[in-house]
Design a protein around this nucleic acid. Structure first.
Length: 266
DNA sequence: ATGCCGTATGATATACGA
């Protein structure tokens, strides 16, 4: 069974229904994970997703901010679980189990605000604490047999080739050394493997986000790779393909993030 | 190129994104 998974920060699911429909029609993901749905569960457009062929869903939203969701065409999403981190009730982590003995984690990591100093910026401190807490949790749960998939908007671009200019972004939130260190410790917490970098070598520049504010995002190409798919070692051989669906960034009324697609042979 | 763009909200300005 080859499963096509996609992760996409849609920056409001209600504002992005046309884009989502087009993406689903063109790429036919079996499982679609969304971040920044920005809607309370009571107002989530579930009927639109049912029409797109998703027979299963797990949603965890809040009004106006954050929010994560998992949709599946055929595979059941079992034991859906909402996880609160740092004692702050924000809808940032939803996970479930799927066939193939797989545990699927959908994350929306805090953006971190503007100033990359935890002493003066509470949002940046929260971002670092979030990664530290999550890493400790996975480290406690670490087992060789665990078949985990972790994906989402992790809001860190760790490699030099994950940003348009390593040098110019060293002091910009998302690519600072302290964030990369925290992500690295999270990455080590369960010997995670970056599924996208298993397919695309680290020498290759690869982005999944381009700011709305650039006049011509495509020509400037000042992107960052903020959206990730990781797997535990037990799933290394399952990774068949991985790619960023860049065309979606250029569709009418787009998200500033492009979807990331991974194919797993489970 | 810290952009002037897009989303949300008891909106018509403000918070947030990264």
């Amino acid at each position: 069974m080859v499963l096509r998974l996609a992760t996409w920060n849609v920056n409001s699911v209600r504002a992005r229904l046309d884009c989502v429909a087009r993406f689903v029609a063109e790429e036919k993901p079996d499982i679609l994970c969304l971040q920044e749905t920005k809607v309370h569960d009571d107002a989530f457009p579930l009927k639109a997703f049912a029409k797109l062929g998703f027979h299963h869903h797990a949603i965890y939203g809040q009004k106006g901010y954050h929010g994560v969701a998992i949709f599946s065409t055929e595979l059941a999403l079992e034991q859906p679980t909402r996880r609160v981190w740092c004692g702050i009730e924000q809808a940032r982590h939803l996970y479930c189990r799927i066939a193939g003995d797989v545990e699927l984690h959908n994350f929306y990591v805090p953006a971190g605000g503007d100033v990359p100093d935890p002493a003066v910026n509470d949002k940046f401190a929260h971002k670092l604490d979030f990664m530290t807490e999550v890493a400790a949790w996975f480290k406690r749960r670490k087992r060789r047999r665990n078949r985990f998939v972790l994906l989402g908007d992790l809001n860190v671009a760790p490699l030099e080739t994950d940003v348009w200019s390593h040098k110019q972004l060293l002091r910009v939130v998302s690519h600072t050394p302290i964030e990369v260190e925290h992500m690295e410790r999270w990455y080590q917490s369960h010997d995670w493997l970056d599924a996208v970098r298993l397919v695309h070598p680290p020498e290759e520049k690869l982005f999944s986000w381009w700011s709305y504010r650039a006049r011509d995002w495509q020509t400037a190409d000042k992107g960052r790779r903020l959206d990730h798919v990781w797997v535990t070692p037990a799933l290394r051989e399952a990774v068949q393909d991985a790619r960023v669906h860049k065309p979606a960034r250029g569709w009418p009324s787009p998200s500033d993030h492009a979807p990331v697609i991974v194919e797993l042979d489970l």
